[in-house]
Design a protein around this nucleic acid. Structure first.
Length: 575
RNA sequence: CUCUCCGUAGCUCAGCUGGUAGAGCAAAUGACUCUUAAUCAUUGGGUCACAGGUUCGAAUCCUGUCGGGGAGACCA
């Protein structure tokens, strides 16, 4: 684990030892009392100088400006930053000035976490600051933080490498304050929605993530295995069927913020695991749900921005209810210029050809219509728009339209050309439901590998009777991208999925090979430094010379590991 | 999966048509008791992602691998 340390990391580890020698615990166990945050000081101090005369505050050292016997430090806590004024004779009132001269100036670094006491004042340059009376190290930082500087709203040397930011999000959060803001807003979005539901008496529930049948959506699942039951289990792709079983069970409204998993491609709008809210409300239909959805989104926008207009890229999106409503057939008429109403599969296939849309024989009527819509319409739906009345083949869980048996009572909400919500008047006819599942089976025989599985327990539940019901699902990650103006899903997930980091395998053999030959772990980096990259090279060496050279190297590098014996080295070479 | 750009010090980046690496910040040492991208002086810090190839000589040219960004294909 401890490979080559950089010069600065080695210096920090030395400082750590010196601190311990001086009797300072770099990682003390006891609590440090904090009685104020930087945000509270900045909010109240300038108007009332009598406040904050005895404060205790903790945070991370972000930058220092040392001028001999006095210094300024920028301290960052969870709410922001404040400047500290550290004066030698203030923190070292007696003869012994080592706390300032040695500990503060030499042994502390940017990145260390400290606690201070003192009082708030305003410097001659007009900056609200803390006059430090005592200072205590709370945690020593051994790694070097990127130092981001700022002047007149211009940022210098920003920590910007996406790979490093996503892999080491903690560093990103420390040095890039706007990143923290995105995630605070994400939490606000979820809280606003939760209040909206709870005020109406709906119940927050939890349903299985490990499912024997991955139902409720069309997607490729992750498969895992349960040892005790000796059965395959799937990570859920949706929770729709379970929530509807709860409506059967007698709840009037249930919702879940669910983590779903889909074993499909990754790009800037798709992560293998993502968060979806699904809500089901008894005795409602999809018209009711449209009203509900637009009110919910308007409220989220207001909660975050205090207005309904939200900046997304170079566009302004207005979440003020009501949103435009358009049937799918009208949308295709408007944007593709063809009328699909009452047309056969062959006629629609011909439309696709005339519009230069690729088709395959396995595509049914529903997929063909969806292809036209996807190619020609979606990109135009910038302002929030409900697209309604989808063809029946695409919606096996959705109630047939009350006035057209070819269609379903379904809507999707499009924002900025992307799908955001999906909702139905839920299908509660168990015979129709089984029939639709069987049609899915036919599709899958035709080669559609994402047709739905049949969940017989769900059909059985419907046979007991489910009230009329409307359900809606909304992608929380996508919603957060819109509401916080982030172009990539990776920017709204703390830890987006990444390929595993491989430590650059040094030329020659891996550590394991050296260990297998009997070399103690601590000596492996030494051998590499000495020039042995592989076990084979090691075996070719003269054990006596090795003993001498390695002993010398141990002294030179001041290594804190036991000296080697000739027999040990002979064992490696002959192993 | 395809195309494309990228990978150099802890961070942000230079490095030309090939000649064994530079800057700013950060760090070390020193000066400085109201600075704020603090300032001034001195110094150290590199497996140029990895592996091959071409060449007298490769950070640079070529091939492959790994990792990342972007675009597309596929996909809700």
């Amino acid at each position: 684990m401890i490979t080559e340390l950089s010069e600065q990391e080695a210096i920090r580890r030395e400082s750590l030892k010196e601190l311990e020698k001086a009797g300072i615990n770099p990682y003390p166990a006891e609590a440090f009392e904090v009685n104020v945050t930087t945000a509270e000081i900045h909010a109240a101090f300038p108007s009332d100088n009598s406040l904050f005369q005895e404060i205790s505050i903790a945070g991370r050292i972000m930058t220092r400006r040392i001028m001999g016997a006095a210094s300024f430090v920028d301290l960052q806590d969870s709410t922001g930053r404040i400047q500290l004024y550290v004066k030698r004779d203030e923190i070292c009132p007696g003869e012994d000035k080592s706390l300032y001269n040695t500990v503060f100036k030499r042994l502390l670094d940017i990145g260390d976490i400290i606690g201070v006491t003192g009082y708030v004042f305003i410097t001659q340059m007009g900056e609200t600051s803390i006059h430090v009376k005592s200072l205590k190290l709370l945690s020593k930082s051994l790694r070097v933080l990127p130092v981001v500087k700022e002047k007149d709203d211009q940022v210098f040397d920003a920590f910007s490498d996406p790979e490093a930011r996503y892999r080491q999000r903690y560093v990103d959060l420390i040095v890039n304050p706007e990143v923290r803001e995105v995630f605070i807003k994400r939490s606000q979005i979820i809280n606003t929605m939760r209040s909206f539901f709870n005020e109406r008496g709906y119940l927050e529930v939890e349903t299985p993530i490990l499912q024997p049948i991955p139902g409720g959506a069309a997607a490729r699942p992750f498969i895992t295995h349960h040892n005790a039951l000796d059965i395959p289990l799937y990570l859920r792709i949706a929770n729709e069927l379970y929530l509807k079983k709860l409506i059967v069970g007698g709840f009037d409204g249930v919702y879940e913020f669910a983590r779903d998993f889909r074993n499909e491609g990754m790009d800037r709008t798709h992560n293998p695991e993502f968060t979806v809210l699904e809500i089901y409300v008894a005795y409602k239909d999809y018209f009711w749900m449209m009203d509900f959805t637009e009110q919910m989104l308007e409220r989220v926008a207001l909660a975050l921005h205090a207005k309904t207009a939200v900046q997304v890229g170079d566009r302004t999106i207005d979440f003020k209810a009501p949103f435009r409503r358009l049937t799918m057939s009208d949308a295709i008429k408007e944007y593709a210029g063809v009328d699909i109403a009452g047309k056969t599969e062959d006629e629609i296939r011909a439309f696709c050809k005339s519009l230069n849309i690729e088709t395959t024989p396995s595509m049914g009527k529903g997929k063909l219509i969806d292809a036209i819509f996807g190619e020609k319409c979606e990109e135009h739906l910038v302002q929030p728009t409900f697209i309604t009345d989808y063809p029946i083949e695409m919606s096996p869980l959705c109630k047939r339209h009350r006035s057209d048996p070819e269609l379903t009572e379904r809507f999707e909400l499009f924002v900025n050309g992307k799908e955001l919500c999906n909702a139905y008047s839920e299908l509660n006819d168990p015979i129709d439901q089984l029939d639709r599942f069987q049609q899915q089976l036919e599709l899958s025989k035709k080669g559609d590998d994402e047709a739905m599985f049949i969940d017989m327990d769900f059909v059985r539940a419907l046979e007991y009777g489910m009230p009329t019901c409307s359900g809606m699902g909304i992608g929380i990650d996508r919603l957060t991208m819109f509401m916080t103006n982030q172009p990539s899903i990776q920017d709204v997930l703390f830890f987006p999925q990444m390929r595993p980091e491989k430590k650059a395998t040094p030329a020659g053999d891996a550590d394991e090979a050296f260990l297998a030959a009997g070399v103690p772990e601590a000596w492996i980096p030494v051998l590499r430094k000495y020039g042995f990259k592989s076990v084979a090279e090691l075996k070719a060496a003269n054990p006596n010379k090795l003993l001498n050279d390695l002993g010398g190297l141990r002294k030179k590098m001041k290594l804190d590991i036991p000296a080697l014996k000739l027999e040990e080295i002979q064992a490696w070479v002959s192993a």
